[in-house]
Nucleic acid binder design. Sequence first.
DNA 1: TTTGGTTAGTTGTTAAAACAACTATATGCC
DNA 2: GGCATATAGTTGTTTTAACAACTAACCAAA
Lengths: 146, 146
Amino acid sequence: MPNNQFKKSELYSFITGVASTAIARRLQKKFNQADLNLTIEQWSVLYHLWKEDGISQQDLCKATFRDKPSMTRLVDNLEKAGMVKRIPSKADRRKNMIYLTEQAKEMQDPCYGFAEETVEEALSGVSDDKIEVCKEVLKIVYENLR
Amino acid sequence: MPNNQFKKSELYSFITGVASTAIARRLQKKFNQADLNLTIEQWSVLYHLWKEDGISQQDLCKATFRDKPSMTRLVDNLEKAGMVKRIPSKADRRKNMIYLTEQAKEMQDPCYGFAEETVEEALSGVSDDKIEVCKEVLKIVYENLR
DNA sequence: TTTGGTTAGTTGTTAAAACAACTATATGCC
DNA sequence: GGCATATAGTTGTTTTAACAACTAACCAAA
């Protein structure tokens, strides 16, 4: 029997995600101060499109861990803001392929910088070893619950 | 100069909180299956009231890391659902002290159980040592950004 | 080729999040 | 005491989240 030094249900912050909320808010503020006019949720979509442009809404759902209705509306708003375009797939007419506009492509570098900055601030005083452990655990949690 | 093995901005999951989102959804499902009629956000308020009953909305804001308007509406809904009562403070007439109803007190044990279960599932295969590191890092992040 | 099941995306609804602007009360300084 | 400032809470508004229910298109098997 394992010797638990703590009650697991005491992991309130894990469930409520106060740390990730704090990081997201900080990043949002940086976006606002730079007049980027971009929400964190929109950024999380662009983040994946910057890595691979022209993927379907469903692909974006998997990548961002959001459901289909949420993605429909996120893409709606990104399209309204002129950051992406829906192009119907020729191979599969059910699909919309989502493409970045020039405007959105230009946002990649500044956004990347703000994200870097934010994570640096959040993790100041934390050793790289511990960050690696966290990344590992977060990944396992994600796999366990998927 | 530290030798970083990774780009910190690659910590996408940290910012977007996919792990905590996954845990929260799992817990929400358990609440729904048990017909508890309770959102995770409401649970996060009750969680603190179960530890200390009769605290102000402002105290709950600090504890749950939410802003005042959010708390007003959370308490509105909890009150409508018959789980808490607002009692004006006699010492400071600006304050509402929030008290649990009997109904909400009875929900503590089952909720605690579901939270325990969820965290067990989320962290299965993760050693206690690593969980401790995560708790530590999440706490530092929270402190760094507050 | 038709039928049944699956997948991609949209729409409707309710709760919540974030921000600004507001009221009311309390407190501290002159 | 009176005034400036801070604190507690509410209201209004826009965006997002999650779920269910829906349409349209694809696919595979009879």
